[in-house]
Design a protein around this nucleic acid. Structure first.
Length: 459
RNA sequence: GUGGAUGUAGCUCAGCUGGUUAGAGCGCUGGAUUGUGGUUCCAGAGGUCGCCGGUUCGAGUCCGGUCUUCCACCCCA
């Protein structure tokens, strides 16, 4: 019987040992930085109750939710006519009560509300787990991908924003990814639309502005007009959108432009505070720039918004986030402001792979391999291997007594730096021949000296 | 969800207006070299041409469907 070719669903991936080594390098780096800043890990289930997820990401987000079919007799009580109707959405809410998580922020909000009595605030947590979106896949866009979230909730202080910028800077410096942090503030955007008298079209206007880099100012203006923004307002928006200069110059100009908007001025003050605090930090490698065209679609953001782009490769944002004043409100907990960012591990991977900047040491399995000359020699090597491992040197013995050519090739393929050779003559003299695979040099040392030799060479 | 491309060996790709037994490079296996990888030389093994159906004497090639990957929109990590 012919079996179907094995395959995995669209937009999902398998990871080989080499890919895992690289992915773990990213996760480990991110985790270690998060810990340095006092954040603690949590995990939440892959699936959430659908009502937890629906309505939190806008209509577009609802469409991209993966829904889980109820178990058992899920057709019970369903009106047969609803099955043939066009409205699949209405049907799905009848037969699905769970969905796969779409991001880590909303489950985090649910977590905070659910365990509020046991949590000490401000609560600083990080969370590294996969999320799922029923999007159409492209490069850098998957249906299953990992987010690495850091959030602090229960604190209004703008020092948290500063801290997040430092975290972003440190993560990407450690990974060797050149990047630019773009910063904006929802309050400034609100102020902008208020000043031009189009406050009710905040979303439409910001979504259009967000595309300015891509489609240009004329196309953005055309989109404004299509959405019903008045010509007068469009005219007034031009100088604001096209503001140039340093961050402080932009803020000064904005202060004049948004003078009549209370929220707008509040947003400007927040940005000023953040930039001022950043000035006191030395050694920041990332460029932080105020980008008024940055909008971000997620509608729960209320204050600062962040987005990080890789400088050396065209790719969507590799990190993004912002402040949300009332995310927990929808779950019944008011006045709980939070701010956080999410690192896109899969996109960071794609960038690092494309730029070929993963450290080579990641590829090695063991640091030293003992060649196998036969059972007698192999048994003789076992205690030496045991000793090396206890000293933290990863060591392996080639399991089969096959041709040297094959064994050396194995070591070469697996990027093992040293091959130890213990054949009959070495055994008799109590020696070990050891070959450095990258230089090709080989020397013979006393059996006892191998620990020192390797520890010196590998350091 | 809308529009457009793509799929041939493990990988990257050739394959003419449909016509014998579908090719190359790299990789892989073996040998030259029975205690030495990365270079060289020789030999060899890998393919239901994504899948299903149609047109035809004949389909990798044309047509329809489907799946995958990719691009644009949308949105986003």
């Amino acid at each position: 019987m012919a079996s179907a070719k094995p395959s995995i669903p669209k937009g999902t991936r398998d990871f080989s040992p080499i890919e895992m080594a690289k992915r773990n390098h990213i996760f480990d780096t991110i985790k270690s930085v998060f810990k340095t800043y006092g954040y603690q890990p949590i995990e939440t289930p892959a699936m959430e109750t659908l009502s937890t997820l629906l309505g939190k990401y806008g209509d577009e987000g609802d469409r991209l939710l993966f829904k889980i079919l109820n178990s058992g007799d899920f057709t019970k009580g369903i009106d047969p006519s609803s099955i043939s109707s066009d409205n699949a959405n209405a049907l799905s809410t009848q037969i699905c009560e769970k969905g796969l998580r779409y991001d880590l922020t909303v489950p985090f909000a649910r977590f905070v509300v659910q365990y509020r009595n046991g949590i000490t605030f401000p609560f600083k947590r990080y969370q590294i787990q996969p999320v799922w979106r029923a999007d159409r896949p492209q490069k850098g866009r998957y249906r299953e991908f990992y987010q690495c979230d850091v959030d602090v909730i229960g604190s209004n202080s703008l020092l948290n924003e500063v801290e997040l910028i430092l975290i972003i800077d440190e993560v990407f410096r450690k990974l060797g990814v050149n990047n630019t942090i773009k910063l904006n503030n929802r309050k400034i955007l609100s102020g902008m639309v208020q000043v031009v008298g189009e406050a009710e079209r905040l979303i439409d206007i910001t979504v259009a502005i967000d595309k300015i880099d891509k489609i240009g100012i004329e196309a953005v203006n055309r989109e404004f007009a299509e959405k019903g923004v008045s010509q007068k307002a469009i005219g007034q928006l031009q100088p604001i959108i096209l503001l140039q200069g340093t961050n402080n110059e932009k803020l000064d100009l904005l202060t004049t432009a948004l003078a009549t908007s209370e929220v707008g001025l509040a947003g400007i003050e927040e940005m000023r505070s953040i930039f001022k605090n950043l000035e006191s930090i030395e050694g920041l490698t990332t460029t932080v720039e105020l980008d008024l065209s940055l909008a971000r679609g997620l509608n729960y953001y209320t204050g600062s918004i962040f987005e990080v782009k890789a400088n050396d490769m065209a790719m969507g944002s590799i990190c993004g986030g912002g402040r949300y004043d009332d995310l927990t409100g929808i779950f019944g907990l008011k006045d709980m402001s939070g701010v956080g960012v999410s690192f896109g591990a899969d996109r960071i991977y794609d960038v690092m792979e494309h730029l070929n900047i993963f450290p080579e040491s990641l590829l090695a399995s063991s640091q030293v391999m003992f060649a196998n000359f036969g059972e007698k020699e192999a048994v003789y090597c076992l205690p030496i291997l045991h000793k090396l491992r206890s000293l933290g040197v990863s060591a392996e013995l080639y399991p089969d007594s096959v041709k040297m050519k094959k064994q050396f090739n194995y070591a070469h393929k697996k990027n093992i730096q040293f091959v130890a050779i213990v054949g009959e003559s070495e055994m008799q003299k109590g020696e070990i021949s050891i070959k450095n695979m990258s230089t090709g040099e080989q020397e013979t040392i006393n059996k006892q000296d191998i620990q020192n030799f390797l520890q010196r060479e590998l350091s």
